[in-house]
């Protein structure tokens, strides 16, 4: 038996909106640690890893580890029926083939339940080792989204370069080229508006903007985003989910032939 009660139900709505473009079907794994997911896009270029820790739920009951295959578009359709202030409870029976989403209005005067069919998904799980990154850039998530959107009107790829001068986002296309440099600025009024660059070694990597733009669908989840870069590794774009966990996106770089 599984029963997870999330008071801030809007978080789950935002999580689904942030990943449903990248991944069609995925297994949600439920254990004593929390509610999690790891899934790759169909071309195996990008991966999403989600963790909502059990402590973040008001009530968390998971009698034994469960993996529930869901179509994310269908799940998003159901969660769209929850109000932004609603409490969402996820319920499932061991070995059952459905999951129920229960929505409670804050005043408890409207209670809805939506039952969704589960599916069998053969998903490939990747082992992602802990890594020391050459550079980690933390910046306002809205600024990162703006940069990705702006550059994708000029080119298809972005070169992200970190030096002691700052972080540079560059693109080239048929109509011309663009460079956006963000310098470290820790003297802003609010910490979430700061750009912080933690660099051990200069790094420069090229990525497809289409995927970066898809990742920025997670912007409503967090005021800040952290971008971890190493010359030999996929980039990690992480949005922290307040007091609960994270959504991390991994993207394989473009490599010179």
């Amino acid at each position: 038996m599984l029963e997870l009660r999330l008071v801030q139900g809007s978080l789950l709505k935002k999580v689904l909106e942030s990943i449903k473009e990248l991944v069609t079907d995925a297994n949600f794994d439920c254990s004593s640690t929390g509610f999690s997911l790891q899934a790759m896009d169909s071309s195996h270029v990008a991966l999403v890893a989600l963790l909502l820790r059990s402590e973040g739920f008001e009530h968390y009951r998971c009698d034994r580890n469960m993996s529930m295959g869901m179509n994310l578009n269908n799940m998003a359709k159901m969660l769209k029926c929850a109000g932004n202030d609603d409490i969402i409870t996820i319920k499932a029976d061991d070995g059952g083939d459905t999951v129920t989403f229960m929505f409670e209005s804050p005043t408890q005067d409207k209670i809805s339940d939506f039952e969704m069919k589960l599916m069998d998904i053969d998903s490939e799980h990747l082992g992602i080792p802990e890594a020391e990154y050459h550079a980690i850039v933390k910046m306002p998530s809205s600024e990162f989204a703006r940069i990705c959107r702006d550059l994708s009107s000029i080119g298809d790829t972005v070169v992200i370069s970190v030096t002691k001068e700052g972080v540079k986002f560059s693109t080239k296309g048929d109509i011309g080229s663009a460079n956006i440099v963000c310098r470290q600025n820790t003297s802003v009024d609010k910490p979430e508006e700061a750009t912080v660059i933690d660099m051990n070694e200069p790094v420069s990597l090229t990525f497809a903007l289409r995927y970066m733009n898809s990742f920025t669908k997670a912007t409503p989840l967090s005021n800040t985003v952290s971008i971890s870069l190493s010359n030999e590794l996929p980039v990690v774009v992480e949005y922290k989910i307040a007091e609960m966990g994270y959504v991390r996106f991994y993207l394989a770089p473009k490599i010179e032939e």
Binding site: H44, V45, H125, L126
Partner: peptide, 14 residues
């Protein structure tokens, strides 16, 4: 020109 790599080049399947 650069070519898109895939994640399985970097991470092992488990």
């Amino acid at each position: 020109d650069s070519k898109q790599s895939t994640l399985t080049r970097f991470f092992k399947k488990v």
